[in-house]
Amino acid sequence: MDDTSETGNNGIVLKCEGLTKLYTSGLIRTKTVTGAKDVSFGIKRGEIVSLAGESGSGKSTVARMILRLIKPTSGSITLNGRSIYSYDIREYYRQVQAVFQDPYSAFNPFYTVDHVMERAFGLREGSIDPDEKDKIIQSTLESIGLNPSEVLGRYPHELSGGQMQRMLIGRSLLIGSQLLIADEPTSMIDASTRAGVLNLLLSLKKDKGLSVLFITHDIGQAQYVSERVLVMKQGEVVEQGPVDEVFIRPKHPYTKELLAAVPTLYERWDTCR
């Protein structure tokens, strides 16, 4: 792709500056709710950045703005040095894709899961014959450790949450996107399959140079998967930096609180507060 040469191998893929989203409701007496306030950060090629924070802290708002699903009130987002709104919508989604929190809501129960994979071809240029499509889908699924015969042709309710999340990651691979917004991809799936999804992200980062914005409320996962972390509270980024620095020597009281709230093994719960 042309864009990769512009930014170089270690360039910044995505950059957010002063990103703010205010929700206003009511016509005469307006009420304003802050979704995100002055959020600035960048993601490099082949880097996994975690966005941590409690529910309602604005993590998903940031994700949705990056995905062009909602418009920011102010601030700018640039992809490979260009404003994301300067891209044609299809061209943009060829580069930025997402995995959402609830796999059961991400697949339309009306169709078999193939529907989601086939739709992804709509973003590609030119037409591909059906046989070729099937081959690409199968090899992609195999490359992420899914058995195509086990998942294809099934309805969403017949698959496990982990399988579905992997398929969605496979979908963005199929499109060949360079940035993946993973909005709490593991919070609604079994603990036993979580590691599989996390390891898949790590291996894609290593092999394909995939950049990931990993949104989570689980500090442990953030530490496992990412190099850098941003901690959000009430729409603001209160602390950011390398994972080890933030989590071992937290500066902001909220980060300390978050860390203290992580339950640990071999410790009495009432004493760990």
């Binding site: 995905l67 699903l69 919508i89 299809r90 989604y93 894709q97 997402a98 959402f100 929190q101 609830d102 809501s105 991400a106 697949f107 339309n108 989601v116 739709r119 992804a120 709509g122 973003l123 969605l168």
Partner: peptide
């Protein structure tokens, strides 16, 4: 539902 977002991100 997220599949609506996903469809939008498939360029529909």
């Amino acid at each position: 539902r997220e599949y609506v977002n996903l469809a939008r991100m498939s360029g529909q």
